[in-house]
Design a protein around this nucleic acid. Structure first.
Lengths: 224, 224
DNA sequence: CCCAGATTGTGAAATGGTTCACAGGAGGGG
DNA sequence: CCCCTCCTGTGAACCATTTCACAATCTGGG
């Protein structure tokens, strides 16, 4: 099996969610066309994505909703529980803990760490905030699969190193900076700053385009 | 100016942050090579990204740090304030409000809305949670540029419609579902579910690859 | 049994993004 | 003043992803 692109994986995740909805609506079959419609993409994209993993549909009919859901569930590895360590018990950390959607999909936060003495020992959900210095010891008994970094920027790389040393195989980073981890550790970053700035760019461009159209200014940019 | 790819914009955002750090370190010049190193990409990528907007460097020397920072600031539209409406005063909403990093970059949350009567009237930072029914009225006086959706999934599309009707030109969506908005409104989605599932996939793949290597099972996938 | 209509799976083409490689400066040392 | 080193800006080559387009296959109805 050749390497699967990140965008294909992300779309699988979306298909999975749509299939759950469609199943709840009681439909038994769905075509690539209808699946695509709900995601705002083309049906060819849907079929291509699925074809990397096998042939799950039937020509003339479409896909069996629950069967396809099961297949994608297995492909994404959602058919097993993952043990997640959360580092950072601030606002984002608390939000992640409070959101029940993750544990229902098998992402179980089994420990919470922080460095701030004011937070240590606090109860968050049914967990107690531990000192981040205890991470290695706790990791050896709880064997985390995934680490989530919800700390301030300056702590993020150190925490990442600690998580790697503790044996996690994946890291989800919410700190707005580039982290460096070994090749055998998967890293995903959720950077809200980048999202805001990307919106700012889009809005600025749109404004500029409108102004350009209105005044007939030639395109191009003056050198300073 | 031809259309700029989303990935280029996201990288600009990263360059901007690195440049701020480098400036704080007191350096006056930086080469594309060093900039690239800090982001884990190639120097050609940096130069290509910047070249879409102009020639900011000097051959043989590199880029003037503060000048380049200013240029990127202007390109991304960060040299002006944006008025942000936050809808959803739950955990994520509270986390966004508490994070001072956004307002310092010019993203000012100027109103917070919710639908839950238990939250209405509550103080969050220096704002009072308003009923989402007041959104149109408040929008007409405060003229929001950007709307942030931090509501439960089922409310998200309705809120998006309301924000569009209220005249926002950009939406940042934290609800894990696909939203449909008109072309003239920019949409970015931060979907933590997808990030987790993408990690799950990566971990599953790695595990599978290790097992495959160990047992010499031929690659490919059996049809069920 | 055969045809009409629907829909998949997939090579091939098209598109879009990244990397290469080098000409064109720029500064510094002798 | 000349040469050597450094580094940008960019066309061209390369690579990855998306879209096209169609043969293969399925069902249902006559």
């Amino acid at each position: 099996m050749s390497r699967i692109s990140e965008s294909t994986v992300r779309r699988l995740s979306h298909y999975y969610r749509v299939l759950q909805e469609v199943e709840a609506e009681g439909k038994r079959l769905i075509s690539s066309h209808r699946l695509a419609e709900r995601e705002g993409i083309t049906s060819a994209q849907v079929r291509k994505d699925l074809s990397y993993f096998g042939s799950f549909g039937r020509r003339g009919l479409g896909y069996n909703v629950s069967h396809l859901r099961d297949e994608i569930c297995a492909i994404l590895g959602l058919d097993r529980p993952w043990r997640v360590a959360l580092v950072g018990a601030g606002n984002i950390g608390a939000a992640l803990l409070a959101y029940r959607g993750f544990s229902s999909q098998g992402f179980n936060i089994v420990a919470v760490f922080d460095r701030d003495p004011a937070r240590l020992g606090a109860r968050l959900g049914d967990l107690t905030v531990q000192d981040v210095a205890d991470l290695p010891a706790t990791a050896s008994t709880k064997s985390f699969d995934i680490g989530v970094i919800a700390t301030p920027i300056r702590a993020a790389q150190d925490v990442a190193d600690a998580l790697v040393a503790a044996g996690v195989r994946g890291i989800l980073n919410f700190a707005p900076r580039k982290l460096f981890v070994p090749d055998h550790v998967a890293l995903r970053t959720v950077d809200m700053t980048v999202e805001f700035e990307s919106l700012s760019f889009a809005l600025t461009q749109a404004q500029g385009a409108r102004r350009r159209r209105a005044t007939e200014t030639p395109r191009g940019r003056a050198r300073s």
